[in-house]
Design a protein around this nucleic acid. Sequence first.
DNA 1: TCGTGTTTAGGTCTCT
DNA 2: AGAGACCTAAACACGA
Length: 400
Amino acid sequence: MLSAVKMEDLPEWSGSSYYGEAECYSAAANMNSMSSYMNAPGMTGSGHMNAHYMNPVHPAPVPPGLSHPPTGSGTGMIPGLNSALQAGTSTGCAPPYGSAQGLSSEHYQDGSEDSKVYRLSYRSPVYGQVREPKPYRRSYTHAKPPYSYISLITMALQQSSCKMLTLNELYTWITDLFPFYRQNQQRWQNSIRHSLSFNDCFIKVPRLPDRPGKGSFWALHPDSGNMFENGCYLRRQKRFKTGKQQATGTGKQQSTSTGGKEEKEESSGGKSNSVTSDSPPSLPPSSSSPPATLKSHQDLDPVQQRVPSPLVHTPHLYPMLVHEASHLKPDPHPHHHYPPHLYSFNHPFSINNLMNEPQLHRLEYGGYGGQTGVKQGPDNGAMPDNGNYYRGVYRPLMNS
DNA sequence: TCGTGTTTAGGTCTCT
DNA sequence: AGAGACCTAAACACGA
């Protein structure tokens, strides 16, 4: 059974801590609600479908510049949305839905500017009836989403139509979707940068000379395709690593305090369930020009593990290649017979649900640390009482 | 100057 | 308990 989530140790995120008893959503109710949307016809696994555009209960946020919720579906394929979103983006591609233009605070249903008060309408988990919208107040800004930074980056990149974003666009996507990250920006942005540099699953795509600007684009490594199985963006089972470091000892650094352990593992060949790309798949014939085809990490710059020169000069092709390669990862659950682009998004914590249910989702996380809530650190940061930011994280029970 | 990117270091937590 | 994933802080270099 997919989408089963252990809830008993998730008091904060499941939304009980910040509610009075009368206004608590049970975890089951939340999950039912989420599942109901996931299971809706045409919704399951559609990574580019947006429920809001069809959902009378949770109307779609209307990006500025659009007088009506756009019709159609697909990131980068929403009629009228792309043109509205493309302006001002570094890539010239539509940013991921949920970026500043799409999910800023002015879209919150109560219209509050500080994004701290929500008004939620919802379906009764028991009767499936639509209740009257009921005002809920929640201070969710101290609630840290259960997604790791790697997850957030991956989600943002996958949601962008070009499959690559600048650092600043990543920041924007994260802060717009998770108000938690509107505070202590120096802290988490440093972590984002660290994650981008440290993790092999992210590769840097240089800017074209005719598109000057600050910073490079970041994209997912073509072989990193399925780091988060079933689209569950919580904790990876295995870190993605290229096989290059083994041979050359160069590339993205691996020898940090934790890297030593990783080197040890790599030298022993890793584990069988590793998502390393020791045997990278080859791309099928592509409409892309052959020289620009990024077959695997072997085509990356041997020194820097970066995009090789052909792609440096054709970065506009690279996202397509990334997208194409992302379909090549072996299905970890072949018996499911999900198309790769579907099984990547059918989990309750998939970006699909996140993007489809922004209001609902935002309501559901209350932070970590159990019933006592999060404490206000000296920097107003969101640290649990015991400083344990892992406590209370959802535990997905996959295939159970 | 500031944003970006890399690297090191040390810590917590989960999983086996 | 050990290994691994992840978080945070910080120093440093580089370029717009």
